[in-house]
Design a protein around this nucleic acid. Structure first.
Lengths: 138, 138
DNA sequence: TTAGGTGCAAAACCTTTGCACACAG
DNA sequence: CTGTGTGCAAAGGTTTTGCACCTAA
């Protein structure tokens, strides 16, 4: 039948739960290897896919183009505030926007809707640096 | 010295402006090749990076893990509801979201903030087709 | 002239897949 | 026993990079 309960799967799940924010499959694999398990990279990917499919994990794309995962928290996902200067990424809650996106898709009869909501800008540090360079370099 | 003004760069910029919504570098390259230009894939990537760095284009990750770009329109800001199946694009107004984005950036001390708010999904037609295939094959 | 841009192809990167074997049920 | 899961490595995809030539200022 469906899924078996292997220690590999458990380790992946545990490592995922252990991580506070998002983790890439590569990072997860590295963690697991460092943890003295001879787990394979493909296994990590497969476990992650399965976990994501069964709703135990959330999967999305990092700004770097990697797939990143997090243990599934009961309530929806969030979005990102990304610094163009240093790459700093702040996770933001946007329940209103979630609702708006769903409503907008439904209004137009769209199904299977995913939304992209991200804000690019300069973080406080980079804003200060940019201002300094501006008056400095002219 | 800074950037030169090559026809390749111009074509990339034009193709980008020509596209409603987001386009991947691969798609852009295909368009440009079909347009009778012998432009190279690497050139498209390089032009896109330059454009993104100079603020003329916005770059982000599609749900499929590709980097996607769109022309940065300084005026008449609106968003898109894009059909994954047939490419149909609906322009949507989102004043509430505009306000929210501005507020969120400010709250975190971010400056020069631009936001990306787009929804990908299946339009009514493609939804129906997908449902038909589902009950047919499943 | 100068130095940045271009094209091609190979490299690098992340992710998926084929295969033989092991292990959960 | 049955069939899913695993590990390895090779394949697949996208994006970057090296190099020689070209071209815009």
């Amino acid at each position: 039948m469906a899924q078996r309960n292997t220690w590999q799967r458990d380790r992946v799940r545990a490592a995922l739960a252990d991580s506070q924010g998002f983790v890439s499959a590569q990072e997860l694999h590295a963690m697991l290897r460092a943890d003295n398990t001879g787990i394979g990279l493909a296994t990590v990917y497969r476990a992650l896919s399965t976990l994501a499919a069964s709703g135990e994990a959330d999967q999305l794309q990092s700004p770097d183009g990697e797939a990143i995962y997090r243990a599934c928290t009961s309530t929806g996902h969030h979005h990102h505030l990304i610094c163009r200067g240093c790459g700093l990424t702040v996770e933001i809650q946007a329940d209103d926007v979630e609702a708006w996106a769903r409503r907008t898709a439904a209004t137009h009869g769209f199904t299977h809707a995913q939304h992209i909501v991200d804000i690019f800008g300069l973080c406080p540090d980079c804003s200060a640096k940019a201002a300094a360079e501006d008056s400095d370099a002219g």
